[in-house]
Each structure stands twice: as structure tokens, then as C-alpha cells.
Design a protein around this nucleic acid. Structure first.
Length: 588
RNA sequence: GCGCCUAUAGCUCAGUCGGAUUAGAGCACCGGCCUCCGGAGCCGGGAGCGCAGGUUCGAGUCCUGCUAGGCGCACCA
């Protein structure tokens, strides 16, 4: 019963942050339309046509679900109906008239219409479609495709698996998520760093040491009982023989020292292995922060000092308590146990305070579902320390069940009762593993279909997306073989792209126009699964286009335009897959 | 018992800030499409918002209650 954690309390950040885009796209078009609407509103309230209250109403500008409703639509007339005491369509008529006048000067908006209960629809023309394509092929991912006007310094902490055993499938899910969060935030103008918190202190290290001692003694043929609360996995048997090989005999001093020594030694080995595996998975952390360093530093004492000054500490039954109930926690929490040692919470608070002290103003932690009960006390503790609670976010990465043949896979090849991350990677490979994890929202428990992930066929979503990219590569090299020049990013203009008029071509371009906006949407909501869905949809649009339209044909102008469309499509697919950490092969 | 999460098609899941007489994919099932650039592809076909109320111009989306499942409720980490 392998269950692995993934996600979510997410969905904060409903801020009014604005983004500027590196290229003309759907989101940029929406910014322009919003500007036109605001201008129209000011004019109409200025001359008394509409009451001043109209300026206060919120409204949306978004892409309609039905393409027949144009490229963008606004509900402004509907929201104004009540404050203006006029029917929505009536208001829409007044607005649309003014907007149409403004659109005369706009290069892109070609048509404005009133529809349904009072929506105002905007349709963009050929200039827009051509500029979208040119913008995509000319853009540089290094510059980012979008930039926030409110950059934050973000620390994303994830995986942070205990160094007491191999990483499991849940850790792979968290690793994929955190890695993508950082990339998304950095791509949209924030400054994000990844960090791994190494829990290399506390009782678990002693337990690890005791477990290793038993394995070492057993390896030497002694009758030695394995501790009841020890770590039973085979990996410690392996580590025992490595220990004997590297270190020779066990040291002889007091038992406490022995266990600490063995525990530390094993933790270092296990940590190195975790790091190696994460590297294979394509996840590199910017920093590794050790709990032992936190405990050795002044942080925990400072936390106590600050909390005492602020009046949130009290002693009871010889323990030191945090009055976390003052900040919405269910019950107060012990910080220092009656035996004088720290609970996990105290150094953890010190650690998070240190994150803020290092200059980060937004902390994102990815935790497993078994830790969700810990969120309230952590948040309460940080509030008690005086930090705004909104700057601390926890994404719960929900459980993963590995499925094969319609059944849950629970037995490891190595005989344990879990499946390790390493086994998963050996089984399905990095691309499939990452894509499958990122395909679903972090907050929903995942049934990971091993059979499907291994399948090298059209049924496998990751292959579907990659195939589109490889197919385009094939077309481009095919062009070269036939002596057809593939136009470069700057070689095309509105005129030369005019031949693109087929329904599948226009649908594909419009979907490509969503590109930078999709990145921003995923970054703001911390929902990479939107990008997985998007890249699959772009691939689908490309395949449709490909089936309907021959790229390398007799008409040289049309061929050039379509080759350009191919390039733009490949670019978008590669960019999105790149964000997800999945390769975009040129052949497969 | 208290708290949090989840409930959408036979299965696995999307559904953005509450929007448009038809709620979307994929898998599975059925039927079409290769003289031609990669058929790992394309086109077409059925069925669904757990239950009951409420809010409103408008609800899968928000509120209340109920039902079912998951997780959490340590002087563990």
C-alpha cells in the first residue's frame, strides 16, 4: 500500500499583480483590451452617460470557451447592470460604440460585437496572428516570456526526505513539482531558489545508528537482535557491508556515541545517494540546509527569546509551551520538552525564521499529506514571531498509488513494502515519470499507471507531445533535403505569413497565442498540470493541421509560411516541455 | 469526537475570477482516413456534475446541512 503524498492548499496569490509579456500574445491582447475598456469607461462616466460608480466595478476580460465568440470577451456590461440600473445589453451597446471608435486605432482588434445576455466580444485579425508567430520564433526563453511588476524573493523547499532510507515515489512527485515551481517563478520575473532541508538531527539519527549497528553485527555473524523501532529495509544491510569495508571494525566507546557516529555516517551516505538520484531526475537544489546546523546555531534560543518577549510562551508540567491557539491552532504546542530537549517544531521555526532573515519574502513548502496537520502550528508559530502569515505557503502533494494491470503495486523488487524512486525511474524513465506527476494537480491523489507510462505508443500522453515535436523536426530536415529553405525567425513579415488561412492553421496559431499567458497562469496558481494539458492540446492542434495541410508543397510562399508555423509550434512545445523538465526529442 | 481534503462519463482526470441554449480530454468500445512531408497521426460516434436546500441576472464553481472516502488530531520527526 504505497501511498505517496502530494498537494495542496495552494491557490493563494489572488493578487492584482500585472505582467508584461515578451511578445504579443493572448494575455498581452487582453491587457490592451482592458486599457480600451477603461478608457471608454472614463469617457462615458465623464460625460454623464454612465454613473461614476461604473468605475468601481470589477470585470473580466477572458478568452471565451467557444471560439465563435471571438478572441476575447468581457462581462463589464453585466456587472454594470445593477449599479447603473439599466439592462446589460443597453449598457453593452453604449460601450461597444465607444470601443469600436477606439478600435479604429488598434492594429489588432478587427471586430467588436454584443452577444448573449450582454457580453462584448472582441475579434483580432490577421495582423495579430502573424505577429504572434513572429514573436514566438523571435523570443528568447532566457529573457523569460513574461515579467511581473511585483517580483518576490521566493524560497521553495521540497523533498526534504529523511536521510534514513531511500526516497520513495512521493518524493519524486514533490521533486518534480518543486523543480517546476522554481522554473516558473524565475521565468516570470521572480527570484526563486530551491532548498532541501536535511533532517540530520534528533532521535531518528540515533535510531538509524542503532539499526546500522545491528546490521553490522549481524554481518559479522553475531546473534544480534534488530531494534523493534529500527529501519528494516535491505539498504542498511548493504550499508553495513560498506561500513565494514571502509571503516573496518566498530569503534568501542559508549553506546550513545556509537549510535550517533553510525547514524551520522549512514545519513551522509544516504544523503549522497539521494542527491545522485535527484541529479539523474534533473533536479538540482540551490542549497541544502541541515537541521543539525540549525540546532547548533543560536536560532532556537532566539525563537524562544522573541516568543517570550511577545508573550506567547508559558511553562507547564516542566515543559515550555507555545500559545499557538492564539493564532488559530487547535491546541498549544510544546517547544522544549520536560527533559530539556527540543521538539521538532522549535528548530523548524528557527529554520523558517532564518529563511526570512536570508531575505526571502515568500516561502513555499511542499509537504506530504501526512504533514497537513502540521501546517496550522507552523503558521501560528511564524505569526507569533511576527511574520505575516501570507508569506508562508504549504502545498500538500497528495498520495501516489502505483498501478499495474489494474492493481496497486506495493511490493518492491528489493522485498520492502514500498517502491523507491529509483525503481520508478528504472521502470518508466525520467520523462514519463515527470510528465505523469505534473499532469495532475498536486492536490489530487494520483493513480500512476505504470503500464501506460512504459508504453511507447500513442496511448502514452508524454509520447503524444514528444511525437509532435519530433514530427516537426522531421519536416524541417525534410525541407532541407529537398533544397527548401527554412525561413529564420526574422525572415517573415505580415505579408509573407498571409497565406495561412486554413481553419486548422488559424486554430493552431490562436492556441500558440496562449503560450506566455499559460506560463503566467501556471506560475501564479502553482499549477504545472495546466502546462501539461496545454502542451497536449498544442500537439493535438498541430497534428490536426498536419493532417489537413501539406507543409512541403508546390506553392513556395505557402510552404515558407507553413514552415514558419511549424517552427513556432515546435518552439512552444519545446519551451513547455522544458519547463516541465521533459525532453523534446528531434526524433524518436 | 474535532479539523482539513476529496466527490464530474464504465476507468483516470481537466474545468482559471461565478458566465454564453451543446460541462471538456484521454483510456476503453464502434465506424471511417495512408499514390503524398514521420499512421507514435487524423476525422466521426454514447454516457456525467454524490444528495437536499440557499445566495444571484447566471452555480460543477459560493454558503448551509447530509452521505461516502482519505488524511490529520504527540513532550515523533
Amino acid at each position: 500500500m504505497l501511498r505517496l503524498p502530494v498537494s495542496s492548499t495552494g491557490r493563494r496569490g489572488a493578487t492584482l499583480t500585472r505582467y508584461s509579456y515578451g511578445t504579443i500574445c493572448h494575455a498581452e491582447l487582453a491587457v490592451r483590451v482592458r486599457g480600451m475598456i477603461d478608457e471608454a469607461l472614463h469617457a462615458l462616466t465623464g460625460d454623464g452617460t454612465l454613473p461614476r460608480a461604473a468605475l468601481e466595478m470589477g470585470y473580466t476580460v477572458e478568452k471565451p470557451k467557444d471560439p465563435a465568440h471571438g478572441d476575447l470577451a468581457t462581462n463589464i456590461a453585466l456587472t454594470l447592470a445593477k449599479p447603473c440600473s439599466r439592462p446589460p445589453r443597453d449598457i453593452a451597446g453604449v460601450l461597444a460604440e465607444r470601443l469600436s471608435a477606439l478600435a479604429e486605432d488598434d492594429d489588432y482588434i478587427e471586430e467588436i460585437e454584443i452577444a448573449g445576455p450582454g457580453f462584448i466580444n472582441f475579434r483580432a485579425g490577421d495582423n495579430y496572428l502573424a505577429d504572434v508567430l513572429m514573436g514566438i520564433t523571435r523570443g528568447f526563453s532566457g529573457d523569460g516570456w513574461a515579467r511581473t511588476d511585483n517580483p518576490r524573493k521566493v524560497l521553495v523547499e521540497f523533498v526534504s526526505a529523511n536521510p534514513t532510507g531511500p526516497m520513495l515515489v512521493v518524493n519524486a512527485r514533490a521533486a518534480a513539482l518543486g523543480d517546476v515551481y522554481c522554473r516558473l517563478l524565475n521565468m516570470t520575473g521572480h527570484w526563486a531558489a530551491s532548498e532541501y532541508y536535511v533532517n540530520d538531527a534528533g532521535g531518528q539519527i540515533l535510531t538509524l545508528g542503532r539499526s546500522l549497528e545491528a546490521r553490522i553485527r549481524q554481518a559479522r555473524g553475531e546473534e544480534f537482535p534488530f531494534p523493534g523501532d529500527g529501519y528494516p529495509g535491505d539498504y542498511l544491510v548493504d550499508l553495513a557491508s560498506i561500513y565494514i569495508e571502509e571503516m573496518g571494525d566498530l569503534p568501542s566507546p559508549g553506546e550513545e556515541d556509537l549510535w550517533t557516529h553510525l547514524g551520522d555516517w549512514a545519513a551522509v551516505k544516504i544523503l549522497a545517494e539521494q542527491r545522485r538520484l535527484l541529479g539523474l531526475y534533473g533536479v538540482e537544489f540551490d542549497s541544502w540546509y541541515h537541521e543539525s546546523a540549525v540546532r547548533e546555531g543560536a536560532g532556537p534560543e532566539q525563537v524562544i527569546e522573541i516568543l517570550r518577549d511577545r508573550g506567547y510562551l508559558y511553562e507547564s508540567e516542566e515543559a515550555l509551551w507555545l500559545r499557538s491557539t492564539a493564532f488559530g491552532d487547535d491546541k498549544d504546542r510544546v517547544l522544549v520538552k520536560s527533559d530539556g530537549s527540543y521538539t521538532y517544531l522549535l528548530p523548524d521555526l528557527a529554520y523558517h525564521m532564518d529563511k526570512f532573515d536570508r531575505g526571502f519574502d515568500r516561502l513555499i513548502n511542499i509537504w506530504g499529506p501526512d504533514h497537513h496537520g502540521y501546517i496550522a502550528r507552523m503558521r501560528a508559530g511564524l505569526s507569533a514571531l511576527g511574520y505575516p502569515e501570507d508569506n508562508f505557503e504549504v502545498v500538500i502533494s497528495q498520495w501516489v498509488r502505483l498501478m499495474s494491470g489494474g492493481h496497486e503495486v506495493s511490493m518492491s523488487k528489493r522485498g520492502g513494502t514500498y517502491v523507491t524512486m529509483e525503481e520508478l525511474l528504472e521502470e518508466v524513465g525520467r520523462d514519463a515519470a515527470r510528465f505523469f506527476f505534473l499532469m495532475r494537480s498536486a492536490s489530487s491523489p494520483l493513480d500512476f499507471d505504470l503500464d501506460l507510462a512504459k508504453e511507447q505508443s500513442n496511448e502514452n500522453p508524454v509520447y503524444y507531445a514528444q511525437y509532435a515535436h519530433a514530427r516537426i523536426s522531421g519536416i524541417l530536415s525534410g525541407a532541407a533535403e529537398r533544397g527548401v529553405e527554412v525561413p529564420g525567425p526574422g525572415d517573415m513579415d505580415r505579408q509573407s505569413l498571409a497565406p495561412l488561412g486554413h481553419a486548422t492553421e488559424r486554430a493552431l496559431i490562436r492556441r500558440l497565442a496562449d503560450f506566455p499567458g499559460e506560463i503566467v497562469g501556471a506560475a501564479q496558481s502553482l499549477e504545472p498540470h495546466r502546462l501539461a494539458a496545454y502542451v497536449l492540446d498544442v500537439a493535438a492542434h498541430f497534428h490536426s493541421f498536419y493532417t489537413e495541410c501539406r507543409v512541403l508543397g508546390d506553392d513556395a510562399r505557402l510552404t515558407r509560411a507553413r514552415l514558419h508555423l511549424c517552427r513556432a509550434s515546435a518552439r512552444v512545445i519545446a519551451e513547455i516541455l522544458g519547463i516541465l523538465g521533459v525532453t523534446a526529442p528531434s526524433q524518436m
